[in-house]
């Protein structure tokens, strides 16, 4: 479904990703793990078309999307829920969700509004409120809800648990399981390695702009090397 080959990318003159290969197949949850500053955001900005790669290819559902504009990428159903939520603070919860279907999923807007508010009943309670007045956890729900409104074929979740309380973190991983259970493919970008490896089918460990390790999540979780370097076990 998503095929990233030899992706080189960065900002201005500075190359941050030095040739990265990543795959996501239909129906998978794939985790991309790495600490701060290894290039996770750069990867995301290139997948969503915010940045133009220096080299390599990005194919999504058979189409080359490297350097395509973000709107085209949304049209294809590659939807990103960004780090820091990036909800529209001056719009109501309802309007935020409606704008999720600005380009894709417009025809089924009413039905999807119903679906998203069933997944997140909290958003229903806050339906008319400005997004700025929501708590961090609620804003995260809203950001994911907005992503779901565009009927994603592949949903990229960028650090969805950042800043959430432990209970909410657990709920977030439960939700990822549920959404995947309904057939949604998910690319999970996270720092939280332990729980991400539990939730994912496969994982990539990123270090210094390259894939340092990859494989089935269960295998990686058991790897002594990784446990020592990453999980501090």
């Amino acid at each position: 479904m998503l095929e990233v080959r030899g992706l080189r990318a960065g900002y201005g003159e500075v190359e941050i990703l030095h040739g990265m290969d990543i795959d996501v197949a239909e129906g998978e949850v794939v985790a991309v793990l790495g600490s701060n500053g290894v290039g996770k955001s750069t990867l995301n900005n290139n997948l969503s078309g915010i940045c133009v790669p220096f080299g390599g290819s990005i194919r999504f559902c058979g189409e080359d999307i490297a350097g395509a504009n973000p709107a085209r990428i949304v049209d294809l159903g590659l939807i990103q829920v960004p780090e820091g939520r990036r909800v529209f603070p001056n719009l109501s919860v309802r309007e935020n969700l409606e704008l999720g279907s600005y380009r894709r999923g417009k025809a089924a807007r009413a039905r999807n509004l119903g679906r998203v508010t069933r997944i997140f009943p909290r958003l229903m309670e806050r339906f008319g409120q400005m997004a700025a007045t929501l708590s961090g956890g609620e804003q995260q729900m809203l950001a994911i809800g907005r992503g779901l409104m565009s009927e994603p074929r592949l949903l990229i979740l960028d650090e969805p648990t950042l800043g959430l309380s432990p209970i909410l973190v657990d709920e977030m991983f439960e939700l990822i399981g549920e959404l995947n259970g309904e057939g949604l493919s998910i690319l999970l970008i996270e720092q939280n390695a332990v729980q991400s490896l539990e939730a994912a089918d496969r994982a990539y460990i990123i270090e210094h702009g390259v894939v340092a390790m990859s494989g089935p999540a269960a295998e990686l979780a058991g790897s002594p090397d990784l446990r020592a370097r990453y999980l501090g076990l």
């Binding site: 709107a71 049209d75 990103q80 990036r86 704008l99």
Partner: peptide, 8 residues
Amino acid sequence: HGARLVGI
């Protein structure tokens, strides 16, 4: 940024 990501 959020606007770009919904395809605006």
